Simulated scan of single mutants.
Amino acid sequence: MKRLLPLLFLLLPALACAGSLQPLAANDVATLLEPPAHGERIIALWALDCAYCEPNLQALARLRDQHPDEIELVLVTTDGIEQAATIEARLHGMKMDGYPNRAYAEASPERINFLLDPHWGGETPRVLVIRADGSRLGISGALTPAQLEKLR
């Protein structure tokens, strides 16, 4: 038991930040949009006041759970980081707090919207798929089964 205690203390920081909400500033967007080494990164953009976001996030989580070695799922709320407590409570309620989560941290959210996808008008839900080959796909609105199939 004494040997396990130091190991637990080493793992706590990693476990604590696994699903904790992180700020997303304009200078972070380029890194987020870099193609993954393999598979694809799905960036799920959502908002607290979005009626279709929760079903989309849950469908994306199921897809990611079916293909854990191929899909990286990152959740990005277009709400401001100053609403962190409300955002984290909502994520917890949706059982989505175990995924990497980001919240806008800029005075001008439109700037981050444009940097993420210049063809996006800011509506949510929005899904950005970035593939290892550098190709991208953007889908706005509630995801249909056919659209979910195209994501992988």
Rank of each mutant, 00 (worst) to 15 (best):
L63D: 05
G141I: 06
K150V: 10
N113Y: 06
R136W: 02
L32E: 01
E149H: 15
I42F: 02
L21G: 03
A84K: 14
E72K: 12
A25I: 02
L12R: 10
L128C: 01
D133R: 03
P23K: 15
E149V: 04
A44T: 02
G121Y: 01
A51F: 06
D117C: 09
S135C: 06
H119R: 04
V29D: 14
G98L: 00
A18K: 12
G122E: 09
R111I: 11
D97N: 15
L115R: 03
A107F: 01
R126M: 13
N113S: 06
R64V: 07
L21V: 00
Q147S: 06
A85F: 07
G19T: 11
P23Y: 12
L48A: 04
L7T: 09
M1C: 02
E149L: 08
L60I: 04
D65W: 03
R3C: 00
I112T: 05
E110K: 07
E70K: 03
A37N: 13
T144P: 02
I43C: 01
I81K: 14
L5V: 13
G141Y: 10
A84W: 03
Y104E: 00
E110A: 15
E149T: 12
A47C: 09
A103C: 02
A103M: 03
M96P: 06
R41L: 02
C50G: 02
T31N: 13
